[in-house]
Each structure stands twice: as structure tokens, then as C-alpha cells.
Simulated scan of single mutants.
Amino acid sequence: MDSALSTVGLPLALGIIMFGLGLSLTPDDFRRVGQHPRAVVVALACQLILLPAVCFGLVLLFDLPALLGIGMMLLAASPGGTSANLFSHLFHGDVALNVTLTAINSVIAIFTLPVITNLAIAWYDREDTVSLQFLKVVEVFAIVLVPVLIGMLVRERRPDFAARMDKPVRIGSAVILAVLVIAILVDQRENVGDYLADVGLVAALFCAVSLVVGYVIPKVAGIVESQAIASSMEIGVHNATLAIYVAVEVLDSTEISVPAAVYSLFMFAFAAIWGYALSRRIRSASTA
């Protein structure tokens, strides 16, 4: 990937996205865990334990090359993206739960993302070529949490500004992700056909499984419909920008970022189709 894009554009892009997330958060979003403990615990268990296990199973089943396998596990370890809140709102999910899950998981991921990624690196015995060291973890910690904290501070002091910026930041986040995906695919254009053949089906399956598991498991656990929808969107719509940043800037491998880029090609379309299907089912049930 072009050096200016990777060293300046990518950190700046992630910083803007995390600042936008901060503009939507308040300390009450973290305290809300006590109000909906079951929904939060079930969703986090799916996102932090079940989905990485499912992703690893897909990686083994399809016998992915090492760097693409590591990229898939990095994606699985990434928290929910800011767009999850938008999809949840569109399809009558509990947006407050989305905000809470995003806030908590963005913090937890600082610790779980390096663990899961390093386990994947160790599985492929690639310690000689890629690694996720302590200083790099601190770097990710800073670029994720510092903009979030600044955004929260701005919201506390200028709530009117935070409200006005909500829609532009969401649109901007989607545009930034689209630019990153295009840049990665252009950078890897000589191999993009092979990558899509290798990881396209895995990424699509993982996206579909994430959305379905995120809804079905909470429903089985007795979570109400709106919270199950919120959980589904939170688990299915990953923060692909963070995964791309870690791959390119921390692991110094554009190839590892390819699964996140490919996943993004499916993510928005699948989330919209799934949300529409859920909405139709709910409407049908209410009129029956």
C-alpha cells in the first residue's frame, strides 16, 4: 500500500472513526451494563469466544494460506463497527445496547485482539515474519482509545456539536472504509483474483454466520427481540478499519488486511438483507 496512505492516512482515518464513536458515547453507556447484564454478557460471549472459534474452524476447513488465515482471525477479534448502530436503528434494534457493546468491546479488544492474533500467528509458525509486540499493542491502544475519550469529552462539553456531527461522521466512516478497501484491492491487484478465490467464500460465510449467531443465541437465551437484533448487528458488522490498521501498520502486511477488505464487500449488503428479513418476519408475526 502507498506509504503516505498507510503511515498518515490510515491512522488518521481510524482516529476520525474512533472520534466519531466517542461523540456518541457517555459514561452512562458503560454503566448501562448493570441494567441489561444478560444481553451484554451473551453478546460479548458470542463476539469474544464463539465467533473466533467459528472463524478458526472456517480457516481450517478451507485450508487458508497463513497470512490470509491470520487476517481472518484478526478480523474475528475486532470489535463491532460504528455502522452497527445505524443498522440496528434501521431495523428496530436496541441502539442503546449497541452503543454499550461497542464501548465495552472496544476496550476489551485492546487486550483480546493481540491474544487472538498472536495465537493465529503461532499456529502458522510465522513468528519470524509477523508479530504483535507490546509497544505495538500500546500504539493500537492509543489510536483507538484516545480519540474515543476526546470524542466523549467533546460530547460532554458541546452536546449540540456532537449531535450535528453524528450523521456526517457515520457517512464519513463508511466512505473512509470504502476508500481503504479500494486501496487494498488496488495495491494487491496482481493477486486479488487469487485472494477472492481463497478467502471470498470464507469471508461471506463468516459474515452470514456472525449475523445469524448474533441473533439466534440471544433469542435462545431469552433476550428480547430488539436486543437480539442489536446483538446481531454488533457481532456481524465488524470494525474492519481497525483490522486493516493493525494488519498494515502493526503487522506490516497488506496481505493480512485482505480478509477485512473482502469481508467489508459483503458486510453492509448482508446486514441490510438480514435486517430486512428480520423486519419482515417480525411484521408477519405481529399481524398473524
Score class of each variant (00 low, 15 high):
D166L: 12
Q133C: 09
A76F: 02
L177D: 00
R157A: 12
L61K: 12
L113V: 06
D94L: 03
V175C: 12
G80P: 04
L135R: 14
G57W: 07
I70R: 02
A77M: 02
D94I: 03
F161T: 11
V140Q: 04
P147Y: 08
S78E: 12
I116K: 00
G69W: 01
G81C: 08
I70N: 02
P147R: 06
L51Y: 01
S88M: 06
D125G: 13
L97N: 00
G71N: 02
V146P: 01
A120F: 10
L58H: 05
F87H: 07
V54P: 05
V138D: 05
P147A: 08
F111W: 12
D63P: 09
L149G: 04
I116A: 03
V137W: 01
V99F: 05
S83P: 01
T100L: 10
L153V: 10
D125Q: 13
V54T: 06
P159Q: 07
A53T: 07
L61A: 15
K167C: 06
P159D: 06
N98C: 15
A163P: 02
I121S: 03
I110K: 07
F141L: 14
V154Y: 06
R164Y: 10
V54M: 13
D125H: 14
A53D: 05
P79S: 13
A120S: 14
F91D: 01
L101T: 01
A122K: 09
I49L: 15
I176T: 09
V144C: 14
R158F: 15
